[in-house]
Design a protein around this nucleic acid. Structure first.
Lengths: 338, 338
DNA sequence: CAATCTTTTGAACACGTGTGCATCCTCTTC
DNA sequence: GAAGAGGATGCACACGTGTTCAAAAGATTG
């Protein structure tokens, strides 16, 4: 268990420990010849510098905290994968913490990150509580939000990477309207989630633009997961007049909706068209294949981490990065029945 | 950015910093009255102890490293979720690292964990390279493997949590054989993965037990992901005589297989029965619903972390924990056509 | 009241690394 | 050959916490 330290190396090389420190960091202050000798001794002793001690001395931990609502959410897992990859490539390590959308846990996580002295924090949560952001920004550490812009006044520490929800959602609607649909339903997430609000806004805008009426009974709310999507679809199917197309807040909801339709013997897309959002990998393995909006999930994670790296190195960068979604037309959408 | 330290508190409370240290850790050595006063001052100053400095002094980081092949794999994400939850509950933080099954990255990750002086390492990888384990155990830190037993001689530092693959796979086969199937195919993962080898062993054992012949042409290999499953199923469908049932190494493979069957207009389960493994959440949202083996994924993560906690506190514990899978019969299996 | 014991506190050091400054050595230059 | 310049190295300290040991203060006993 006893690790070799630079002092051990210093003793073995017959020099002082600062010289070892400098040799290992390739400082020009130490003679090339002895530096090389020291490096060889260090390697032969299997030396690994202590990031702990280094952090204490330099006040940088090369560590970032990543808070997610749940890593079991496939969308989030993809984003985190992009974050981790980029972080690792630049010598950073990531602390992962699930909040489970539980306020107590959120507070606990922030304290934990604070005590560990992370250099920055990336948040991927469907909802960022009003109380949460002040708590985070109290750490005086750069923060990057993914798919959640900071609601209040611009804060010098808070940055974001998000998809252009309104644009993407408008595209979805144009596609459905272009196919001839008029009675288009929207299955949303729980109220108060920014991405839901924006996608819904795109839905309404497109309806208005096409001159179609907005029918409140065609808007129902799920929970962003299959079960909620299934229940929401059941409500729609209980209506005296079914919609001819359904736009779901995300693929998970669409999955549940698909299930409900299947049980009722309603054919997709013959009887009802269905659209999701996210392009999870499952979307290309449902029957029928799901028409959806592709978000560059891993890339968004990478961009968030790259933004973080810029912030940490003092390079200035765009505060709010918007990426575009891409409509992926598969098999779950078709013209309505005549 | 300048954090408050115990010295700042000491100055404010007019005591020495060791007294503050003791007061905050509720040491009986300091007078209750002054301890209370110090704690109040600390709270009012928003003090958060530096885990860095504490780690340096105590030589424990209360940190564990988690290596996964890819966090984007839904099975792994569930396991990690269980690990993280338990870790967090006990004041531990987790470093997450993806290896992408890339040897270079694996080495890099181990070095990174070493330098960060993690207290322990949990590995969730479908494959643990022969070279990898010695590298890991070189850190002299407890290691817990999930669904991957250490192949070589027992190592005092290496523990594992895994599902009883042979038993589960035998159950699957009994189910299929009980339905009347004889031509049962197996879609495996890439060669050399322990869980694949074991599930395949169960497949053969059950065939032998039933007195049915083992037909090598009915065994094909995918990659554990949908695309590999699809291709494997295509190979099976190219055979002069189709199998009547297909047992897939995991749900992801089954998803791809399902897709291939759908494209060929082959009905599941009417024409061919299909079984997966893992019970990913999607398995209950495919059409038809997938018959599969449920692994207690989150619980396995929790058990791995609990084992780790015991190892770290010196409590001795079982070296190899086996959990049981549960056959979940849904809609994708039925008797073969007469 | 003195001596002893107990409680409470502070001084000093350790953990492993990085860095400003002083020192020593070597080489150059007049 | 002496003075100065410059390169190489070591000393001392800092980072924030925990811990051992000694000292001081207070309590107890004869």
């Amino acid at each position: 268990m006893q690790q070799v330290s630079i002092k051990d190396i210093a003793r073995a090389a017959n020099v002082s420990h600062p010289t070892v420190s400098r040799a290992l960091s390739h400082s020009p202050l130490v003679k090339g010849e002895t530096a090389e000798r020291i490096r060889q001794i260090a390697a032969s002793m299997g030396y690994r510098p202590s990031a702990i001690a280094r952090s204490l001395a330099t006040k940088k931990t090369r560590t970032i905290g990543v808070v997610v609502t749940s890593i079991a959410d496939p969308f989030i897992a993809d984003v985190v994968s992009g974050i981790e990859e980029t972080a690792n490539d630049h010598g950073y390590s990531v602390f992962l913490a699930n909040s489970n959308a539980n306020p107590d846990r959120e507070v606990k996580v922030v304290h934990s990150f604070h005590e560990r002295r992370v250099d920055g924090i990336i948040v991927t949560a469907s909802r960022v509580g009003a109380l949460y952001v002040p708590l985070l920004s109290g750490l005086k550490v750069p923060i990057v939000l993914i798919n959640n812009q900071h609601p209040d006044e611009p804060d010098e520490f808070i940055y974001s990477v998000m998809i252009d929800n309104i644009k993407a959602s408008t595209q979805v609607m144009k596609h459905l309207i272009g196919l001839g649909h008029r009675r288009i339903a929207y299955i949303g997430d729980q109220a108060g989630f920014q991405s839901d609000t924006e996608r819904f806004a795109g839905y309404r805008q497109a309806l208005a633009f096409a001159g179609y009426p907005f029918l409140p009974e065609l808007v129902v709310h799920g929970d962003g997961k299959p079960e909620g999507g299934r229940q929401a679809m059941e409500k729609l199917l209980a209506l005296p007049m079914h919609p001819t197309a359904v736009f779901c807040y995300n693929d998970m909801s669409a999955l549940g909706a698909l299930r409900a339709l299947y049980r009722h013997g309603i054919k997709v897309p013959d009887d009802i068209s269905l659209v999701g959002f996210d392009d999870l990998s499952i979307a290309s393995y449902t029957s029928p294949l799901l028409t959806t909006v592709s978000q560059p999930k891993q890339q968004m994670g990478r961009m968030a981490m790259e933004t973080m790296l810029k912030l940490l190195s003092g390079v200035d960068t765009k505060a709010n990065i918007k990426v575009e979604g891409e409509l992926i037309i598969r098999e779950s959408t078709a013209p309505p029945k005549a």
